[in-house]
Design a protein around this nucleic acid. Sequence first.
DNA 1: GTCTTAAATGAAAGTCTTTTTCAGTTGCAG
DNA 2: CTGCAACTGAAAAAGACTTTCATTTAAGAC
Lengths: 146, 146
Amino acid sequence: MAADFDTLADHLREHGHKLTQPRRAILKTLVAASKPLSPAEIQARGQAFCADLGLVTVYRTLEIMADVGIVRPVHVVDGCHGYVLATPGHTHHVICERCNVVVEIAGCELGGFLERVAQRTGYTITGHWLEISGICADCQQHDDTQ
Amino acid sequence: MAADFDTLADHLREHGHKLTQPRRAILKTLVAASKPLSPAEIQARGQAFCADLGLVTVYRTLEIMADVGIVRPVHVVDGCHGYVLATPGHTHHVICERCNVVVEIAGCELGGFLERVAQRTGYTITGHWLEISGICADCQQHDDTQ
DNA sequence: GTCTTAAATGAAAGTCTTTTTCAGTTGCAG
DNA sequence: CTGCAACTGAAAAAGACTTTCATTTAAGAC
């Protein structure tokens, strides 16, 4: 994830949003995270940076950040509404089933497939949502040693 | 969707679940639906078949049906937790943005792509989740006439 | 620097969704 | 038929998310 705090903060400002202490805290939390965090988790971790960070603010800030494209919601089969930083452009995620670590895959190779779908169904395709689950290299090793 | 009530009902029984009136009602509702329904919608529609169908039962039954593979949860970007009937085997969904009608796509052409992902990331891929959004033929026509 | 103001904040209350508990009911095997 | 485990709905509880509102704060103007 090639996303550093300053770039993302600027991005927020460029869209006319203030860079407040709570927002800094949320952004720092997300930059430091390697897996999707729920709003409650973001609040808990973010309080390290902004002691009285409220949950309401987390919700509001995530909404803004998602609008601006800094953050991306992740829906997984067994639970919804995690958030991870989004790198610019179209990407997909691979999520480890064991430890929830997320790897982003740049680029999207679904173009041809989507065209065939359009032909077959008569739909105009406007978007898609792909999440891949698996087991990351680390967790595979732990398996071996047990 | 090549899913008729009797086949699905048998499927439930084969997994050791009773076929009760509330469950019949839920199944009929889903068979009749052409778009994902939320638990609350399923309750409302299902009461046509079973007058005092409770919401709690809908939640419990959906969980069972999802386990058994009769039903599939649908997560869309702006809201979660719709449910549609699942046809056996691996399929993906195309959902109309306007009217929420769902078309299933049999077969999955992501094999090659997933292999490349596995190589690039070191993950063992265990599953994936693809939902495609678009505008269905009907809704496109309505657009034209407006 | 300091002032001003619109934007942003946290707490509290409210709403909506989902789960748990429990006493009563029902499908179905024998 | 009968018995019993599975299943049910109602009520209550827990949880997730939103709204409201008085106070605070960032950031541009001076």
